[in-house]
Design a protein around this nucleic acid. Structure first.
Lengths: 162, 162
DNA sequence: CTGTATCCTTAAAGATACTG
DNA sequence: CAGTATCTTTAAGGATACAG
């Protein structure tokens, strides 16, 4: 979207993820796919976006290995790949946040397991132990650039609240 | 971003969440805030975006109750509110996905607890029990519109794999 | 039904100069 | 330092007609 800055150059996995599914439609398409939507027309009806935009997004998602495109060339079925399904936690975490902090009249959709039990809210844990926000620490990883490294070191010095 | 369609009309908590933090920069700003970034100039240096854009995003995030703006009017400190911190799971889930499926040379940043233990990968659970992708079900919730309800019912009939 | 091709409008983002 | 004001560029998205 008027993307002058290439997010992928930001040395960050979040930016990497956003550069793939960070636009307005991609995650909603994945959500639909998770629901069971498979056809071009169904996505279109569900999301109400223009044909060319949907075509572009589907092409991109297939190219990025998030969707598969199978069946007759003229009437293909789209489905989530393993990589695409792996987006489920991020997607549902975002939904949970929306449920709790944005939706006014109760959640429009409740996500459950096959027995009807609601999906547990995602929480921060490490080694099985529950974490508070103030326990979070950011360390340089294997792919860390020098400037990011000094940046992290600088930030790590700051006192953390809560 | 050329947002012709108002996402908030899509009866979905995901769309609701995306209409607030679904643009290219907002989540990255929240990430920086999570890291400890507090000042206008620091955000600017870290993200490399234009002044006016940053000002706009900060204003929006404050208006949406995600960031607080405190301290001297001329040199304010920005910090995450409770609502803002609540984005951490979604944000980290997205980072984890990026780490696993996008980053090439190892994660640039590793998130740990104060003891240095890595944050556990987010997984689907219900009632404490681990779930597979195929166990997910979507049910109409309290705020569900009639058309969404029929749509969900239609999709629920489909066979689910994996 | 599933796209492609084309045109058009809008607005998001960048750059820069300026102000308190 | 933390913005605001203004200008320009560019691209994303919508609409529609058409094709396989």
């Amino acid at each position: 979207m008027a993307e002058k800055t290439d997010l992928s150059r930001l040395n960050c996995s979040l930016a990497g993820a956003l550069s793939i599914v960070g636009d307005w439609w991609s995650l909603l398409i994945v959500r639909d796919a998770l629901l069971g939507v498979q056809r071009f027309g169904e996505f279109r009806q569900s999301l109400g976006l223009a044909r060319n935009i949907l075509a572009d997004r589907l092409r991109r998602l297939v190219a990025d290995g998030i969707l598969s495109r199978e069946g007759p060339e003229q009437r293909p079925l789209y489905g989530l790949t393993v990589k695409g399904r792996a987006l489920a936690p991020a997607l549902l975490a975002l939904m949970q946040w929306g449920d709790q902090w944005v939706s006014k009249e109760g959640p429009p959709v409740v996500v459950t397991d096959s027995g009807g039990r609601e999906i547990d809210p995602f929480t921060l844990q490490a080694g099985g132990r529950q974490l508070g926000y103030g326990d979070l620490r950011f360390q340089p990883g294997a792919g860390c650039q020098p400037d990011t490294r000094t940046f992290l070191a600088e930030m790590a010095k700051r006192p953390r609240d809560a």
